[in-house]
Design a protein around this nucleic acid. Structure first.
Lengths: 109, 109
DNA sequence: CCCATATTCAACCAAATGGTTGACGATCAT
DNA sequence: ATGATCGTCAACCATTTGGTTGAATATGGG
């Protein structure tokens, strides 16, 4: 859906949020720990996490008093597919594209 | 650079701008022709084109009184590479891309 | 129970975004 | 030269965004 892409790309357009996603690549984290390396209020980080959650890029699960943040890389696939459509036309991806065609349609090289 | 990603993702976060990019996949276009299918003032579209230009996603070249807009898919590579870090996405899936275009714009590519 | 920890809510603020209209500078055709 | 076309500029407006602080709401530990 168009709205999904709106939310995903908008979420990715902020360096703080991209940094958070990178941190979550390593492991799930509590909100407080996510906020720790940033020079920003906890509330500020909490808002960023809400935006990432609404975009589907992370999920948050509360266990006890700790809310755990988990990366959801699947949400990026939609955006990635959209973007790669434009990449088809760059020479640098041509090899990959031909490999795809060969795989999908059994074409001989 | 982080700023590049900011500009690229922010530019992609708007459905009008994504639609413009899709139109430019087919061919270079004059500003007036880009604006034609939208129910928006020419000035509005002109602003969107400025944002796409600053993000490096298109270039604009004036020939005579006509300013031609040209897709620059290379600019997407940086963002695409960033996204690849978050999971093993299907390398290239043209069918999925076309399905997206059809769903978003009802366009046949 | 009392206190510290974890997180959000509410209110506020400055700045950016997405849009409009009207006037303007180029450029082309007659 | 006149006039139509192409596109941007300037000013304005409403809404959203990214941030703050201070109070509030769990929850867990001793």
């Amino acid at each position: 859906m168009t709205q999904d892409l709106d939310a995903i790309f908008a979420a990715l357009a902020d360096p703080t949020r991209r940094a958070i996603l990178s941190m979550l690549l390593e492991d799930d984290m509590a909100v407080t720990d996510v906020a720790d390396p940033f020079e920003m209020s906890l509330t500020g980080i909490s808002k960023h996490l809400t935006i990432l959650t609404r975009a589907g890029l992370i999920t948050q699960e509360k266990r006890g008093r700790v809310k755990w943040c988990k990366l959801e890389p699947d949400a990026l696939r939609e955006a990635s597919v959209w973007m790669q459509g434009f990449g088809q036309f760059e020479a640098i991806n041509l090899d990959a594209f031909e490999a795809f065609l060969a795989r999908e349609f059994g074409a001989d090289t």
